[in-house]
């Protein structure tokens, strides 16, 4: 009984008759992210996410990267719990004054070479929250940023594209360029 249940589940949603139009492009993109990660680092890319003041919308789409449609893990990209094991800090939100110190601490705990990716309109320059007494600004106002991924929030596809871009640009940094 239990077995059939499990089988029917996996058969159900995962065997779509035809993938949505962007699905093929997505797979291709994801594969190039994976290839790039292995080529540059010789292993999978470890990502530490830091919410520095987000509305949590960006987190939802970062979470979505792990679902079966984008399947980050399968591609050798993984989220890690500690900054000490991270290659990339994925930072969201305007940096609130209340989070500035915590972000700096996380940044300093991440070994070099490291890349900081600022995710979302808020992370770029504070977005709609810029100018508040409680906001320090965008991520670049607190730690050096290698790449911005725009959007409010950026879609999972845009996030994957951004990760690919950071790997390409990271090449120089990693190989002493």
């Amino acid at each position: 009984m239990r077995k059939t249940l499990l089988e029917s589940l996996t058969r159900g949603p995962l065997t779509e008759p035809a993938p949505p139009p962007d699905q093929a492009a997505l797979a291709e993109l994801a594969q190039s992210v994976d290839r790039a990660a292995r080529a540059r680092l010789g292993r999978s890319l470890s990502i530490r996410e830091v919410d520095a003041g987000s509305c949590n919308g960006c987190e939802l789409e970062i979470h979505a990267l792990s679902n079966a449609f984008y399947d980050l893990e399968r591609l050798g990209l993984r989220f890690v719990a500690s900054p000490r094991h991270a290659d990339v800090l994925l930072v969201t939100g305007p940096v609130t004054k209340n989070m500035r110190e915590a972000l700096l601490r996380t940044y300093n705990a991440t070994p070099d070479p490291k890349w900081v990716v600022a995710v979302g309109a808020c992370a770029a320059d504070g977005g709609v929250f810029a100018g508040s007494y409680a906001v320090a600004g965008g991520v670049k106002d607190v730690v050096p940023v290698d790449l911005h991924i725009r959007g409010c929030p950026p879609s999972p596809t845009e996030l994957l594209k951004g990760l690919l871009a950071v790997l390409t640009s990271a090449n120089e940094k990693a190989h002493g360029g």
Partner: peptide
């Protein structure tokens, strides 16, 4: 709590309806 306090209610003051 309060780490993600963005001061939304202060930004609201004087904002247009759209903002």
């Amino acid at each position: 709590l309060g780490y993600v306090h963005k001061g939304i209610e202060s930004l609201m003051r004087g904002a247009s309806l759209e903002q």
